[in-house]
């Protein structure tokens, strides 16, 4: 575990994406460059990068590789949020406190939009970050909870492809499920 992970100023700096590879990275073996699908390069501490099982196995397969790791399925925007999450997780690894961890996790998802959540899930899935996936899946489920179908459609970009007859039938079948939903 890198000691610098506990240094907040340093960790803030490295979340910022840079379009060029900073020259100083060569001096520090503890940082890894990760290139997103939209060609942004993130300089991430090794301890954070090792939270990504996909990246970890990349280095295990090719330990001598010092090049930038391409992440072809990962766009920059959700990736920066994923890094934010993993940095928090690392703190709890060194200092396990389930209550604080839960609190931190719920804070994390609370401020995210539905769009953020849905964009982060494939990234967490691709990078195989199990904890984050659990948190995100639960968050999406919580947001669907007790909502109308119209809400679910509009907030999660789903088209209504039922014919009006099918929809009427569904409504009749599940009349109880359409009652008492929260206001959109």
């Amino acid at each position: 575990m890198s000691s610098s992970a506990e240094n907040p100023t340093l960790t803030t700096e490295i979340t910022k994406p840079s379009t060029e590879i900073a020259t100083e990275t060569a001096q520090s073996a503890k940082k890894i460059n990760l290139k997103t699908s939209d060609d942004q390069i993130f300089e991430v501490e090794e301890s954070v990068a090792m939270e990504f099982a996909t990246v970890k196995s990349f280095f295990e397969d090719a330990p001598s590789s010092t090049d930038t790791v391409p992440l072809p399925n990962v766009p920059a925007k959700p990736f920066s949020q994923v890094i934010e999450f993993c940095k928090e997780q690392i703190k709890f690894k060194a200092n396990p406190d389930e209550t604080e961890k839960k609190k931190s996790n719920s804070e994390f998802v609370k401020e995210k939009t539905n769009e953020d959540l849905v964009e982060m899930i494939p990234v967490a899935n691709y990078l195989e970050i199990k904890d984050l996936l659990d948190v995100l899946n639960q968050a999406v489920a919580d947001r669907i909870q007790n909502r109308s179908v119209e809400y679910v459609r509009s907030f999660f970009g789903i088209d209504n492809d039922f014919t009006s007859e099918e929809e009427a039938l569904l409504r009749e079948e599940h009349a109880w499920a359409f009652e008492d939903v929260d206001e959109d």
Partner: peptide
């Protein structure tokens, strides 16, 4: 995984979203 976390009533409701 998301669907797994939904209650039975929610699942029935989600079935009304799309095919």
């Amino acid at each position: 995984c998301v669907l797994e976390r939904l209650s039975p009533a929610e699942l029935c409701s989600m079935a009304g979203v799309c095919n």
